[in-house]
């Protein structure tokens, strides 16, 4: 109980270190999910719309990548960005940029797979209409993505939830440097091992609240989405 109340005091006291860590977490994961969305949503929609050789293989690959352990993603990005790696000249290892890249890679398959799931039923309904109207491929893509928007936002929130809660990838490519690359999860890991349980607990509370908020949002957004969906009797 002492730990909980100490954690609570840190939170309501808006402790400067604590706030900086939370802000960096939100920034890194927020940007990562944004990039993953920009890259992944069109890919997911394309996989739902067009059949081309190798599509089935791609679908299986993206679905398997969803279960990729964050440490493996972290390791791969580390190898890319390390000084001897192909992108070593960028010099961004152990910076928030590297963390954003790692988390983008981590969430990208989730956005692809969930977007594909959301677009599939929409395209099935629209296919005839779109062909009959001679719609260009770009219009087809835009139309099904927009009309699957509630599902796509759900994918975005799920991606954010995964990113903000993972520790392996950001730890490896960020290095958990105090005041520079320390985020909520890496701080919890470090502070717990140091015995500083109050700070760890405070961050734990923030993560739990975030998870609740994300799921509440996903739930209410899909409820709103249902109003636009046809129920055929």
């Amino acid at each position: 109980m002492d730990i909980l109340s100490a954690a609570w005091h840190l939170l309501i006291g808006m402790d400067a270190d604590l706030m900086a860590i939370i802000a960096l977490s939100l920034k890194v994961s927020g940007l990562a999910v944004l990039f993953a969305l920009i890259l992944g949503a069109p890919v997911g929609a394309a996989l739902a719309i067009w059949s081309f050789p190798g599509r089935q293989v791609l679908i299986v690959i993206f679905n398997s990548l969803m279960a990729l352990p964050p440490v493996v993603v972290g390791l791969s990005v580390y190898l890319l960005l390390s000084r001897s790696g192909p992108l070593g000249s960028w010099g961004i290892l152990f910076t928030p940029k590297a963390m954003i890249i790692a988390q983008t890679a981590l969430i990208f398959p989730i956005i692809v797979a969930l977007t594909r799931e959301a677009v599939k039923p929409v395209f099935r309904e629209y296919r005839g209409l779109l062909i009959s109207l001679n719609a260009s491929p770009l219009l087809v893509l835009r139309t099904v993505l927009w009309d699957a928007r509630f599902g796509v936002v759900t994918a975005l929130l799920a991606g954010f939830g995964r990113a903000v809660a993972e520790v392996g990838a950001v730890l490896i490519v960020g290095g958990n440097i105090d005041g520079l690359t320390r985020v909520m999860t890496t701080t919890i890991a470090l502070e717990t091992s140091k015995g500083n349980l109050e700070l760890a607990m405070a961050l734990g509370i923030v993560l739990i609240v975030l998870a609740l908020v994300m799921n509440a949002l996903i739930y209410s957004i899909s409820r709103i989405g249902l109003r636009f969906q046809e129920v055929r009797e």
Binding site: V122, E125, Y126, G128, L129, S132, T143, D147, A148, G225, F228, Q229, E230, R232
Partner: peptide
């Protein structure tokens, strides 16, 4: 072209 079950866009 109008289909028997017309697509109701969301």
């Amino acid at each position: 072209f109008m289909f028997q079950t017309a697509a109701v866009m969301r």
